[in-house]
Design a protein around this nucleic acid. Sequence first.
DNA 1: TTGAAAGCGCTAACAC
DNA 2: GTGTTAGCGCTTTCAA
Lengths: 344, 344
Amino acid sequence: MSITNGSPRPRATMREVAELSGTSLKTVSRVINNEGYVSEELVKRVHDAAEKLEYRPNFSAGALRRNDGKTKTIGLLLENISNPFSSGLHRSIEEVARKRGVVVFAGSLDEDEERERELTEAFIARRVDGLIIVPTGGDQSYLLPERKAGTALLFIDRPPAKFQGDVVVSTNKEGARQATAHLITYGHKRIAYIGDYATITTGAERLSGYRQALAEAGIRVEDELILQGFHNSEDAEIAVKELFARKNPPTAIFASQNLVTMGAIRALRRLKLQHKIALVGFDDIAEADLLDPPVTLVTQDVFAMGATAAELLFQRLDGDDSPFHHLEIETTLTIRGSGEIRPE
Amino acid sequence: MSITNGSPRPRATMREVAELSGTSLKTVSRVINNEGYVSEELVKRVHDAAEKLEYRPNFSAGALRRNDGKTKTIGLLLENISNPFSSGLHRSIEEVARKRGVVVFAGSLDEDEERERELTEAFIARRVDGLIIVPTGGDQSYLLPERKAGTALLFIDRPPAKFQGDVVVSTNKEGARQATAHLITYGHKRIAYIGDYATITTGAERLSGYRQALAEAGIRVEDELILQGFHNSEDAEIAVKELFARKNPPTAIFASQNLVTMGAIRALRRLKLQHKIALVGFDDIAEADLLDPPVTLVTQDVFAMGATAAELLFQRLDGDDSPFHHLEIETTLTIRGSGEIRPE
DNA sequence: TTGAAAGCGCTAACAC
DNA sequence: GTGTTAGCGCTTTCAA
């Protein structure tokens, strides 16, 4: 038997702390939870015993009996934890949760409906107080029993399908409209739309903003210029290359998502078109200002989204039962160069 | 009272499912946990009742009674969840955990010792089976009782202080030595080292690799060229600008970490030195290949680190009590341009 | 194949 | 101020 483990000595319980300190279970509970009404001397004896026994409260056991049943735990269902958008949300939610002593489960869905249900089930089985979800394309009606049982639910980035609930999203349509209108201002009429899976609702919103901008400018929407279904930068790069192999290519690109934007940038470079074809992307890119040309982007306020979502969730947990909120966080168009190239 | 909430109907328990299906609590338990030895007819009746009552198992309650006490939950203490290095680890660990039906808590430490202890306490209070920790500079001896109680512990990215345990790290020293030697190969003798907080052990390792490379080449280490204490790209940028305001500036830079590398890149740009001063950075940068010049980097295999760490942790949970492992994951030098500039 | 009883670690309710 | 008893939802043990 090595130093590594040893047969674990089971953790001390309140009962054992009570025995060692010569008092009762309930008094230990009072001391550990700072309830007061315990003499100074007993408080000290209990603390000493707890330390000696290396006592660690079992918060989950307490939750079982506690009246509110709260576990001070929430679950986060994100698209992909390692994507900067997801991890930005995660960080800002963590910040709010931390102030309340709430701890955060997180998991990636990868646009997989089944994974969404499995993870939800796993979190519910551990009795999280609330769930913050970036819903996949499917159907969120399976969450109804969880709501009825009192689990707080909040949807972020996209609204749920076949279900109602609090939602925090970006102004996707307006942001995309603005981006497209910006390109039109610079004289473009043939603007390609490169998008993620068509099932993702943010994509639909952005596409609709793109269409609106064209309509407002009296430009006909050309379906051949609308390319969707790219969920990583490699696929987007290939698609953009193919686009410019056509006889009548566009003079500008609106890329509806960060990975897609990266793919478009790589494609334009490889074709040496980066200074000829205008590009505006949706979502932030780490070094947008350092690229050549610097990339004009519509960015989401990820921090505000996460913080707003978490605040609203906790408000619900605090008993707010006003009608569902649909909060929109504004996007920002940052002009840097790639979007201000005029058609030749 | 709005649709939002309603007074929550408390969740059904096994006892209620038993009543509705006309059997005993234990039989329901057998059915829910697929233990077998239950007649088909009863299985069906139990499932029907469970569905009707929208029964959701309370896994945490079970853990209280279960012999192994496992919660199928682990905790992750990262530097900053929204940093790509942290979120990359998170994702690869999640992947391994998922296969085992284990769910993951995650939190950011921001190099704050107190936060490390608070989060550990919060996770332990929820009885996680194991903890994967990127330790802050402090002292991890506070974890001894947790180990004795059987909580699996694994340190990633950096070894713990005043404590022994399984560790998964990159070949920090060797990676830095290689990066510095690479610059030396290109004729540099005055190479600056720009680093994070000196308390971070990976930084110390990388500095030592830098020193070793210089020593091997018979180059004297100049202390004025070693700049440390930068934890974000803004601070690093300022430091590098100041460095080049000196009378006898270096001809090359080794930046020991991703944010620092970004700061160095920004500074060189602003000074229009990006094609004159050589730069090699440690850690990955999202668009390293698209920058001008493309950035030569020593990258860590984040995915392998996370996966290795998680596998080892679960091995321990499965009862492996061999001596502590110290696993090193190799880094890779990727040559792209910025590191191959010769001194003028 | 089924079930009754005990008890995991804790808090609630109530007595003293 | 302090303690006793019951029981949260579940698994274990043991008996039938």
